[in-house]
Structures are given as C-alpha cells and as structure tokens.
Design a protein around this nucleic acid. Structure first.
Lengths: 190, 190
DNA sequence: GTCTATAAAGCGATAGAC
DNA sequence: GTCTATCGCTTTATAGAC
C-alpha cells in the first residue's frame, strides 16, 4: 500500500468507495485503515471529527464533482448537450450501475439523516438544474420540474434494481432511456 | 410495553420497522430490545441465529406480504385491476413515501449482499408478475418486460427521492403516474 | 418463555512517542 | 505526519437462574 499520502484529499477516493458501498454504519475505522493504508492516528490527524467528518467530506467531494460534471453543463451548455453530458457523468460516477451512490444509501438509512442538509441540497440542486435545461428546451415550467424529478428518479430506481439484481443492465437501460428519449420521457410523464 | 409476546411472528412488525429504517448494520440488539420490549435472551429464544436470522425472517415476511397483496393480484386479477391493487398495496407498505423498503436499503448496502438471494427473488418475482399482467393487457413480451422494470424502478427512484428530501410527495407522484398512465408509460419507455 | 449476567470481540476516539 | 497503545463503551452471543 502506498504510504506517500500527505493530503486530506488523497484519502477521499478510498473513503468514497467505502461509504458508497457500505453506508455510514457499515464502515468501521478498521476498514478505513485497511482501505487507506493509514493508521488510526493519521486518519484523525486529517479528520479530527472522526468518521462523521470523513462522511461529510465525502458528501462534499461528490457534490463538488457533480457540480462540475453535471450541474454546470446543465446550466451552461445547450440543453440537449447538457443532458448528454449529464448522462455520461452519471454513467462514469456509478460505474454504469456497478457501484452505488453515497447519497442514495444515506437517504435510505435513518441514522444518516444527520446528513439531511447535504442530501436535500444534492438532489434539489440537480433537479433545479435539469429542470432549467428542460425549460430552455421548450418545456413549460411545471412540465420541466416534473420531468426532471422523473428522469433523476428513473436513474436511482434503476440503480436500486441493478444493485439488488447484481446486474448493471437495468441501470444501463435507464441511461439509454435518458439519452434516447429524454424529451419524450419528460412530456409523457408530466 | 406489552409483555404478552409468545410467538416469533409477533416480533416481526417491530423488526421490520427497524431494519427498513436503519438497514442491517444500523440495527443493534439493544435497539431491538427497546423496540420489542423483550430482553436479549428472549430474542435468541425465538431467533437462535441472532440478528441475521431476524433479518432473514423480516425479508421472508415482507416477501409473503407482497406475494399476497401484489403478486397474486397481478397474476389472478384482470391486468388493469391487478395493477391498481398493486398501487394500493405499495402505497400502504411504504406509507405513501414516509417509510423505506427493507429490500432497497439492503440492496444498496454492500454487506447485506449476503441476503442477495432474497433481493433477487423479490424484485424478479415482482417484475415477472407485472410483466405478465402487461402482457395480458396487450403489450408485446419485450415491451411488457421493459415496462415492468420501468414501473418498478420509477417507484423505487421516487422512494429514494422522498427519503432524501424527507418529503413523501415524489413517491406520491410516482404512485399517481402508475395509476393514471401505466399503459402510456409502458409503451412510451419501451 | 423470560430474564440477568457476562464473555469475547469490535467499536470510535484519544494520548503520546517518534 | 505517522504510528502504537490504550481507554471506555457497545456490540453480538452465550450461560444459566427462575
């Protein structure tokens, strides 16, 4: 295990993989030691607040990644291209359905509701940005808002199915729906 | 706390609420003692296999409930009515979006993959039954299969959003979509 | 069938040497 | 900045009285 870690952000990838896969309660300090190659004392050097601070850092990091790869394209690119960029980013982030979402598992786990501010902000920001793009694509404000909820929900429902079936195919099909039919989807379900 | 518990199945409601809300790792024997009103020794009297056996019993119990209130109606009632019955059952089971699904949180939590047989069976049985109803409603085999996945995914995606936003409305809207547009939905997204 | 007491292991967190 | 050792508590599970 590489032992050249010097910065807090170098730990975030390992932490993210752990929390997205096991949830907050499922991650132990021992598992973090094993995954990061750092001993307990070093982890507390970077995160004096312990496990809760590590989870918060992961949520903030994923949020920042989404802002760059999803929110900003939705806001700044032409609507059709912004949504295509979003699809690519989501596919990358969730490894095409082979990996989970830390926000999803935290949302379903009751004790993780101490992170509810992050959860609400993540999904509402995303929905707002997507609705904005659909608005610019010509949909009505009401329809755009509804379609954004349906499109994001479709991705997360498929993610649950893919994790449950241990098969990335459902998530892949949700991505295909997003790419091929997002306009029809939005109007058909409004 | 009532102390007249004499049967294993009397414990299942409390266990179900615990596991669906906190996930497997989030539930402790102490919390089960508090929720059930029974002491440790009594719990192990009913579930010698401990927490894992309790979780398995919950999964089997929810599965049985779904078989009665969802699967059987989908198989035995006319398609339209079977789907309407399914919508009512799902609304009841998840308290209109105010409560989670034990299969969903287990699906997202990596360590709960030891229950993967239950997870796969639950969702595949449901999808098969729903696809069968859509088939009888006149859809093609391929379209029925795809639409069943989309309809179930729509519900679970909305459940994630409702839990994340702490707002039952997204799940309520998914139920409304299921009830009002399930035929259009199935064909629009095939 | 229900309980208390306890064992053995793991938990998150801290202290302090280097 | 990294580490080991340890504290105090909680965990799951068991034993055995009633």
């Amino acid at each position: 295990m590489a032992r050249s870690i010097a910065e807090r952000k170098d730990l975030l990838p390992a932490l993210t993989e752990l929390f997205r896969a096991e949830g907050f309660e499922g991650v132990s300090l021992s598992s973090i030691e094993a995954a990061s190659g750092l001993a307990r004392g070093s982890l507390y050097h970077f995160f004096p607040g312990g496990k809760a601070e590590m989870a918060t850092a992961v949520l903030a990091d994923v949020e920042a990644w989404f802002h760059e790869h999803v929110i900003a394209p939705l806001e700044n690119e032409p609507a059709e291209r912004g949504i295509a960029t979003m699809a690519d980013a989501v596919e990358t982030c969730f490894a095409g359905g082979r990996k989970g979402c830390v926000f999803a598992i935290f949302a379903l786990a009751g004790k993780s509701q101490r992170f509810s501010e992050h959860l609400k902000r993540f999904f509402s920001t995303w929905q707002e940005a997507l609705a904005g793009a659909l608005l610019r694509a010509g949909q009505s404000p009401v329809a755009a808002q509804a379609a954004a909820e349906v499109l994001i929900g479709d991705l997360y429902g498929a993610l649950v199915l893919s994790r449950a079936m241990d098969d990335p195919a459902p998530f892949g099909r949700a991505l295909a729906r997003l790419r091929a039919h997002h306009a029809a989807l939005g109007t058909a379900l409004a």
